[in-house]
Nucleic acid binder design. Sequence first.
DNA 1: ACCAACACTTCGGTTTTATCGGACAAAAAC
DNA 2: GTTTTTGTCCGATAAAACCGAAGTGTTGGT
Lengths: 302, 302
Amino acid sequence: MNNLNFKHLYYFWVVAQEGSMTRAAERLDLAIQTISGQLSLLERQLGKSLFAAQGRGLALTEAGRQALGYADQIFQLGDALVEALNSSDNENTLRLRVGISDGIPKLLAYRLLSSVYKMPLDVRLICDEGEFETLLADLALHRLDVVLTDRPAPIGGNLKVFSKRLGDFATGIFGSVSLVDRTKAGFPQSLDGAPMLLPTRHNALRSRIDRWLEQNGVRPRIVGEFEDSALLNTFGREGLGLFTAPLALAEQIAEQLGAQALGAMNGVSEHIYAISNERRIRHPAVEVLCAASPQDETPAAV
Amino acid sequence: MNNLNFKHLYYFWVVAQEGSMTRAAERLDLAIQTISGQLSLLERQLGKSLFAAQGRGLALTEAGRQALGYADQIFQLGDALVEALNSSDNENTLRLRVGISDGIPKLLAYRLLSSVYKMPLDVRLICDEGEFETLLADLALHRLDVVLTDRPAPIGGNLKVFSKRLGDFATGIFGSVSLVDRTKAGFPQSLDGAPMLLPTRHNALRSRIDRWLEQNGVRPRIVGEFEDSALLNTFGREGLGLFTAPLALAEQIAEQLGAQALGAMNGVSEHIYAISNERRIRHPAVEVLCAASPQDETPAAV
DNA sequence: ACCAACACTTCGGTTTTATCGGACAAAAAC
DNA sequence: GTTTTTGTCCGATAAAACCGAAGTGTTGGT
């Protein structure tokens, strides 16, 4: 419980700025007695005195100086709030602040988010990328409305969040044309010794890929590990190695990266989760996003 | 004037978190009528509705969603304030947050600040370095108590600040022993063609140096320009070129940088200013700092 | 289709809080 | 010493926050 009276804090802030209760009372159009009284109430509640008598004026104590720093930020935010609400550019547009975890394919994120544009409203997407933990923290602070990631939020964490699996996407192996030609015959055995780019172990998919490779008895030459899928794709486009991607994106990958599917990794699928704040009132666009039922774009196992 | 009622905002914040007025009323130990009434007052004052009726519950409007983001930060700061004040480590120590402009000699800053340690109190110095403009902004936000810099604050700026000249420091030319030996004879003519390190044009001293060089008819070879004086000193210590510094620091420069004074630059002196917030109640350590009267350590002109 | 349960609003009256006038104390200026 | 300035204490008053009772609209069950 926040036992801080912001009205009192505001008076304190003005007094500190003006340098005296008298001038603060003038600026606030109040009697000095009011300021004095409310200020001593604040000090009582905080358990610290904020001003010390100095001559016939006031001096800030160290506690007061610290409080002043916070008060500054607080009332600046208050002004910003009022201003943001009065700015007219947010009349008919719905803002959706999405955090996209580094590891998940950007094209997949795009496809999943496309559902929100079908809403009968102007939607402005505000995208942010970063590490899983960072994004969760931003979610808790309401800087984000939803996070798209490859794993559910840790249960029992100190953050109250809500994870919804958006879908399973069967994974395949892709590569530039030259690479694919060389390894097409005898898949998956042909992968043995072939150059390959993989996500780092931070990615939940990575362990599934490793297991699949082991079960199929192939040991590709791992030429790179990437935290960020977009970076991985760029390297893959240049023919540096084969890489994995959702089979559902085969068409776009061919168009944008000039890479073809070599084969499916049976049993390996990427799970995408939408993590949002667990409060009853959720963002309408997040509702739409989660409502897009977990339709497996391709069955997980063949 | 900040026409935002933070008490109302707090109720709004709890309602948004809990998802309903009923549950918020429970958490706040208030009747639902109160919440309802205070919330509609907030909406009236802001001129926007924050909630829209949805079914028998509530839904945040876009304005409400934006407000929620601000409220989050505001009440987090409020908690932080209370916590900071209750933490015991600030009992008998006075914190002085000083911003030191890139260009001014660090040793000079140290010497000027040493006066605050003579106060009959434990003083904890918190130093920050950076660009002039950045530091001024931090000053305005009360993240700093005073800024030490080489020029007064711009008059008529939108920030209300107070500049006090702390002193004029006659400047000389210094260099590593080998360099000084080579150019000692016939100073200042011997500077012609000598390698030299100078502050960039952002430094107020630079133009005075340039004028002095011109007036004395010497054209050194400028081998480097530095924004940061500490970096300049490091290069100077390695004998890369001659450099300028306050003559008053000759002793320390000899000790710490192994450099000797070559000669004085008559008429060139570094002005150091303390810029602080213009409010009546100033930091006691800042008072002490400014009280150290503008004693010219060496007269400006010989 | 109807009724009960639920969630919020509206309208008084009551309680709490904030505010101000008057009297007072302390420091500084004269 | 007197006056001026600045802040504090006390009691009355104005403003706000709060709650009980009654009312509207929505949902869900039968």
